[in-house]
């Protein structure tokens, strides 16, 4: 879903940058206040893993492929959508500047879609579902919905840009990303979160959503 430079006129691309910058700033503030020294290796490992898995395009039929984005996964591990914004910003910067994957003028839009929208929708869907469902199902549906909504946002941006017609754009983007979102985002996020919950439950502990309907924060304070 990496938008190239040519798909958005410069003035609109700048507008998306202006919207994205406060989110990037907030994600840096999160790192400053919440990311303790001990968790830096976890963040770095997740970032590297997400960069690598984004190179792994999965065929979804219809001559189309897709890959994981990963903002929801990072947000769940750190218990904050800002962690997802930070990691996706770094990954997208490297992809754009080193590999021409996604434009530089459109980097703001890409950070907004894949870092902010997919991470926030994914994480808060996960948090809402976690009250009544298992960690795997909540992670799967959250990540799936996060990716789907970000694709819908992307097609609206493509329409405003005059690049895609509205309804056919929404239909095509929606259809492809429903499938990519389930396989590439939902399933992988659920598998990784389930594996972390099993092997490193302490890692998810600061995340009050690990136990249904119960926050540990009060007990600890």
């Amino acid at each position: 879903m990496h938008i190239p430079d040519s798909f958005i006129p410069l003035n609109q691309a700048i507008a998306y940058w202006v919207i994205a910058i406060p989110f990037i700033f907030m994600s840096m503030k999160w790192a400053k206040n919440e990311l303790d020294e001990m968790k830096i290796p976890v963040l770095a490992a997740l970032s590297a893993g997400i960069f690598a898995i984004q190179a792994m395009n999965i065929p979804i039929g219809m001559g189309t492929s897709g890959h994981m984005v990963g903002a929801t996964l990072v947000a769940i591990v750190f218990g904050s959508p800002w962690a997802g914004v930070l990691v996706l910003t770094l990954v997208l910067l490297v992809q754009g500047f080193v590999f021409a994957d996604g434009g530089i003028t459109t980097l703001g839009a890409n950070i907004l879609n894949m870092g902010v929208i997919s991470g926030f929708v994914g994480y808060y869907t996960y948090v809402a579902l976690r009250k009544n469902t298992s960690i795997s199902i909540a992670a799967l549906v959250g990540a799936w919905l996060g990716l789907f909504i970000s694709a819908i946002a992307c097609s609206v941006q493509m329409w405003i840009a005059g690049t895609f017609p509205l309804v056919p754009g929404l239909m095509a983007m929606g259809l492809y990303h429903l499938i990519i979102g389930f396989i590439g985002e939902g399933l992988i996020t659920a598998i990784v979160i389930a594996a972390i919950a099993k092997s490193r439950p302490d890692l998810l502990e600061n995340n009050s959503t690990i136990k249904p309907g119960k926050s540990k924060k009060g007990a600890r304070a």
Partner: peptide, 12 residues
């Protein structure tokens, strides 16, 4: 990795 176009390219 699949070399098929991704969702955005395919939609385009």
């Amino acid at each position: 990795a699949s070399s098929d176009p991704d969702g955005l390219e395919s939609a385009a």
